[in-house]
Write a protein that binds this DNA or RNA. Structure first.
Length: 610
DNA sequence: ATAGGGTTAG
């Protein structure tokens, strides 16, 4: 009787995720000597794993005198559950060595899941091959996990092949396939599978919507979310909400995001951890950093993602010192920073030119936290060094780092050389960059500027020729502005807007006032060969100016004007927006392709670093 | 007694 009670209680622990109860039961089992009784050790191991205690699970596993298939499967699950796929796979090597135990279908499913988590197609294919040669090769559960593994490795065709081989497809297999197509951006295939599935559920809707958000089809995801609501699907689990909050963030749709936030509250999920995390990011990406802080401050539990989201958001909005203070608080509350946190922190340092602090953080990341720097970390550090004029150190780093620098990395370094007047160095870097056959139009504009600065006119001509030859054309710039519930999009040079005359009139007035205050148009970044006056006219019609003028004409006086731009703000527009914010005494927030600019009283939060 | 699908930060 007593033994069956322990079984029941431990299984309950696993289901309800109550680690303390698991530990108490373990202690009782030790006390009454039942800890080695029958399958109880495996049940306890499973409970530890499912309660998120992989360390305790592993100690137990090591102490076991007899490990069977179930023990192996349970320890693998424990590591998968804790999102430690490397551990899962490292243990799998031991499986073969330990008493000649052969993996069963439970073990295969766990191994495939670990490969999916790592995104390692090489290991994934090895496990797949081994599975096919085993006597469990018809197992449908493992096949469903293979569908997912191929999907996560970006191979929807391979996923489909496995899916077609599943004999008895169930809800899990259909959902895995919907997710496979959706996350690969294969919209119509995803829809087709979704519709041909025998049943729909919150699970399959979530797979479809989340997948589309992940592949950047945010608007489609939104329409499907509305369809799902119309279908009357009960949102008994908030996962889909975090995806749709993410869609609002990606689209920078603040009003829509606020409405979804309302829905989150209505459905009672506002204290759910990863919903709050998604909301922090949404408000930050929608330029409302105060809204993001409200969410963060109102949380009763915060994890790495919460801290990292607010640190990154604060840094991107130009409040670097505050981002660094937040990090100190994070450390003092014993939340362990991860690789993403350090990206945000080094970025923050680069923004205010805190070279020593940034270097220190980079080293501490490696030494104190055991994190191997990625290309992104090197890029942040390079940015910090080169912006602050430590160009030789930056060049050394480029040559020593274990990554091949990509085009944006070279371009950023090059632009810093130009900024600091290191023309010889710039030309050397430019020659190297050119030989990599860059693809981004702005790289060509930068190169052309460098050569022009060095008076190397034949090279300038060569760049122009290359651009026509490769048909490198600048992506058309556009800016969006939300006024109430209406969204307006302005393209550069647009002349068909119904309020065109009023916009032109206002911009002319502002232009005159700016010139009185000392504004001189900076036409150095206008590409085309044309007269000065013509160049100035080009700048005059840049999309962000049209959007600001429209905002000034239509919005409630005194409110913040929020603009989202697809490209980076040009240097001249940046100057103009600073002037305008002072003249009209309004705060203007621009989210460009790279960062956020809060223009207020003639200055910008980015300190002219962008 | 053990496995598979939907989740947030760069």
């Amino acid at each position: 009787m007593l033994v069956s009670r322990y079984f029941r209680l431990l299984q309950q622990c696993a289901r309800r995720n109550t680690p303390n109860v698991a530990k108490t039961l373990h202690a009782q089992l030790l006390k009454n000597g039942l800890h080695r009784y029958g399958p109880l050790p495996n049940t306890l191991l499973d409970a530890y794993g499912k309660c998120g205690l992989p360390g305790d699970a592993f100690s137990l596993f090591e102490e076991m005198p007899h490990r069977d298939q179930v023990s192996w499967a349970s320890i693998l699950t424990a590591y998968n559950q804790a999102n430690l796929p490397r551990r899962t796979l490292s243990i799998s090597h031991a499986i073969l060595a330990d008493g000649g135990l052969w993996p069963d279908h439970f073990v295969y499913a766990s191994l495939v899941k670990a490969c999916a988590g790592l995104g390692s197609i090489r290991l994934g294919r090895q496990v797949h091959a081994s599975f096919l040669l085993s006597s469990f090769c018809e197992d449908d559960v493992t096949k469903s996990s293979l569908v997912d593994m191929y999907a996560k490795c970006g191979l929807p065709g391979d996923a489909r092949a496995v899916f077609d081989s599943i004999l008895a497809k169930n809800a899990v297999s259909w959902t895995a396939m919907v997710s496979a197509y959706a996350r690969s951006g294969l919209k119509s295939d995803a829809m087709a599978i979704f519709e041909s599935a025998p049943a729909r559920s919150l699970f399959s809707w979530t797979a479809l919507i989340s997948g589309l958000v992940q592949s950047g089809n945010n608007v489609d995801a939104f329409h499907l979310f509305i369809d799902m609501r119309r279908d009357g699907v009960d949102i008994v689990d908030p996962l889909v909400l975090s995806s749709i909050v993410g869609a609002c963030a990606n689209l920078a749709m603040l009003e829509l995001g606020k409405q979804i936030h309302g829905l989150v509250i209505l459905l009672g999920y506002e204290s759910c951890l990863f919903i709050s995390n998604a909301l922090i990011d949404m408000y930050a990406k929608c330029s409302d950093i105060l809204g993001a802080k409200d969410i963060f401050n109102g949380m009763n539990r915060r994890d790495v993602v919460s801290w990292t989201s607010i640190i990154v958001g604060t840094a991107q909005h130009g409040q670097a010192e505050e981002a660094l203070e937040l990090f100190d608080k994070m450390v003092s509350t014993r939340v362990k920073p991860n690789e993403v946190t350090f990206v945000g922190l080094i970025y923050a340092c680069s923004h205010v030119g805190l070279v020593d602090r940034g270097r220190g953080l980079f080293n501490s990341m490696i030494k104190d936290y055991g994190i191997t720097p990625s290309l992104q970390h090197y890029t942040c550090l390079l940015d910090l060094l080169s912006r602050s004029g430590h160009l030789d150190e930056a060049e050394n780093l480029i040559n020593q780092m274990p990554f091949q620098p990509d085009e944006p990395t070279w371009a950023a370094f090059l632009s810093a050389c130009k900024q600091h007047g290191k023309i010889e160095m710039a030309v050397r870097i430019a020659d190297g960059l050119l030989s990599l056959k860059p693809e981004d139009p702005s790289t060509y504009i930068l190169l052309s500027n460098i050569y022009a600065r060095a008076a190397m006119w034949d090279k300038v001509a060569n760049i122009r020729k290359l651009m026509t030859l490769m048909d490198v054309r600048k992506e058309p710039g556009y800016s969006c502005i939300d006024i109430g519930k209406e969204k307006q999009v302005f393209y550069a040079g647009e002349t068909i807007h119904p309020m065109k005359d009023e916009i032109f009139c206002l911009l002319s007035e502002l232009d005159a006032e700016m010139r009185r205050r000392g504004y001189v148009p900076d036409t150095s970044l206008v590409l085309h060969d044309m007269e000065q006056q013509e160049k100035e006219k080009q700048l005059f019609w840049h999309s962000e100016r049209l959007a600001v003028a429209y905002g000034l004409l239509k919005s409630v006086p005194g409110t913040v004007i929020r603009i989202v731009k697809n490209l980076r703000v040009c240097g001249d527009c940046h100057t103009v927006l600073k002037f305008i914010s002072a003249i009209v005494k309004r705060e203007i927030v621009v989210r460009d392709a790279n960062r956020y600019h809060h223009f207020k009283g003639g200055t910008c939060s980015c300190n002219d670093f962008w």
